[in-house]
Design a protein around this nucleic acid. Structure first.
Length: 492
DNA sequence: AGCGATGATTTGGG
DNA sequence: CCCAAATCATCGCT
């Protein structure tokens, strides 16, 4: 079974098949008298001529194998095969075999007088004696080779045994060794090293990055999640979803590793099998270590293509999982009430210049349990929405103004200005660039003092770009106060 | 379901 | 990279 795969899967070079085949033909014919000789072995530049005198016997058999780089040309003339190794009605059921795949190439050797043969023997080949023109398509040979696999195991084993025990075996074996040595290398040097598939590398990297392919447990999933979080997606407080994500990811991971293991196991099993086969074959034909190596490489290539598919689908699964769990847009959660409050407090207390600095953002993020980029998003959204419809936010503004004012009054008596607390704690409520000194609780809107005051008192909190952004914000924001609250702030 | 609110993303400018 | 503005997509209330 496997051997068929090996054959069909190109694992065994055709030359090998033919050599095996020829070998068995020679050995199994009980009348083997292979005296190969050949002063006229064809074009010497073209290949190798085999001229071996083994055992002088009554009959001579000549076989010549000629290999060229691209194709295999075989010219074999065997005489006196009185018993056919392969029965049946295949082309081989004749006495001899004459092959010449190259049209221009004549059967090279002297033709021997037609020996006496079995009465039934002529079915397949008649060419040996009377014709160098008898040529068989290489397909015929292949056909024959394939029919080997149709034989029953016992039959095959018996033949193998016969083959191994044959007295001619060692001699022929050495012949084959010689052939191989001279021909094999030149034919196999092609297409050795392949650069690693870039796609595979990409997949590997991705799986590694996602924590699927990385080191077992612990690092993997967590790393992926933290990566996703830091990339700006997720609020850390949704640990529930994280654990869900982790669980799903580890499921994928498990499946991936199970499958991978399976493939690896199958691969090594198959490799072992093939190597055993080759080892077995090496008793009847020369198999170089290099050849085995190559075979193994081929098998690994085949299996790695399967692995690539596995990796690909794993990647897809991870991507889907990611998009489901970590795409914040899909799973948007409103910030907690407390967080919104903190953000709003800051916003309204810095209404004249609601651009928190990096530090302020950090602090806010910490307070709200969200990421910095979420803070940025929030302020971006807030600014634009506030500006678009100030009147709508009036009430809210009043509310927070009042709150802030309350906070300020409570801290009243403290000599230091709120923002000068810079030493450490980010005092949000106190940052009121709007309320400094303003008696708030008059029911009216909190008038916030623009610009100048702010920058004076809360430098630390403003972003470096203040000057630029501030201008824009002021320009568009302050003048058209609809409810009179904003614009009409007591411009003291 | 509809609708407004809201967080995130995209686009374009500096 | 930050911002404004537009837009998307979901939430959460009715």
């Amino acid at each position: 079974m496997h051997s068929v795969c090996v054959y069909k899967g190109n694992c065994v070079h055709i030359t090998d098949c033919i050599i095996i085949y020829l070998f068995s033909i020679i050995l199994l014919s009980h009348e083997v008298n292979p005296i190969a000789r050949g002063p006229q072995c064809g074009d010497p530049q073209k290949g190798v001529c085999l001229c071996v005198l083994l055992l002088p016997h009554t009959h001579t058999h000549t076989h010549t194998l000629t290999h060229t780089a691209g194709s295999v040309e075989i010219n074999v003339t065997l005489g006196m095969l009185q018993q056919q190794p392969i029965t049946g009605n295949g082309p081989s059921s004749g006495r001899g075999l004459a092959l010449n795949a190259h049209p221009g190439m004549h059967a090279l050797n002297s033709v021997h007088p037609p020996p006496q043969h079995r009465p039934d023997g002529d079915a397949g080949l008649e060419g040996t004696e009377n014709g160098h023109e008898n040529r068989r398509d290489i397909g015929d040979i292949l056909q024959q080779i394939m029919t080997i696999t149709d034989q029953s195991l016992d039959e095959a084993q018996a033949k193998k045994h016969a083959l191994n025990c044959h007295r001619m075996k060692p001699a022929l074996f050495s012949v084959l060794c010689e052939i191989k040595e001279k021909t094999g290398l030149s034919m196999r040097n092609t297409q050795e090293e392949e650069p690693p598939d870039p796609q595979l590398v990409r997949l590997d990297n991705m799986l590694l990055a996602e924590g699927v392919a990385g080191p077992e447990k612990g690092g993997g999933a967590a790393a992926a999640v933290s990566a996703a979080t830091s990339s700006g997606g997720m609020s850390p407080d949704s640990s529930l979803e994280h654990s869900d994500y982790k669980q799903k990811l580890s499921q994928i991971r498990t499946i991936y590793h199970t499958e991978l293991e399976k493939y690896e196991q199958a691969c090594s099993e198959f490799t072992t099998h093939v190597m055993n086969l080759l080892r077995e074959q090496s008793r009847t034909r020369p198999v170089s270590p290099r050849e085995i190596e190559r075979m193994v490489a081929i098998i690994h290539r085949k299996f790695s293509s399967i692995q690539t598919q596995l990796k690909q689908s794993t990647c897809e699964a991870v991507m889907i999982l990611r998009s489901r769990f970590l795409d914040a847009r899909r799973k948007r959660r409103n910030f907690s009430k407390q967080a919104t409050e903190v953000l709003n407090e800051y916003f309204y207390s810095h209404l004249s210049n609601p651009y928190p600095s990096e530090e302020a953002k950090e602090e806010l993020a910490k307070q709200c349990g969200i990421t910095i980029s979420q803070v940025s998003n929030w302020f971006g959204n807030k600014r634009i929405r506030y500006k678009k419809n100030i009147s709508k936010f009036q009430e809210e503004a009043n509310l927070y103004a009042m709150k802030t004012a309350m906070g300020a009054t409570q801290r009243e008596g403290s000599p230091q200005t709120p923002n000068s607390t810079g030493s450490g704690s980010f005092s949000l409520s106190g940052s009121a660039d709007l309320f400094l000194g303003v008696p708030p609780v008059n029911g009216e809107q909190p008038d916030y003092h623009m610009g100048a005051q702010d920058s004076r008192f809360s430098d630390r909190l403003y972003s470096p770009r203040e000057s630029r952004t501030n201008g824009t914000w002021q320009e568009q924001n302050t003048p058209p106060s609809p409810a009179g609250s904003e614009g009409s702030d007591n411009s003291d």
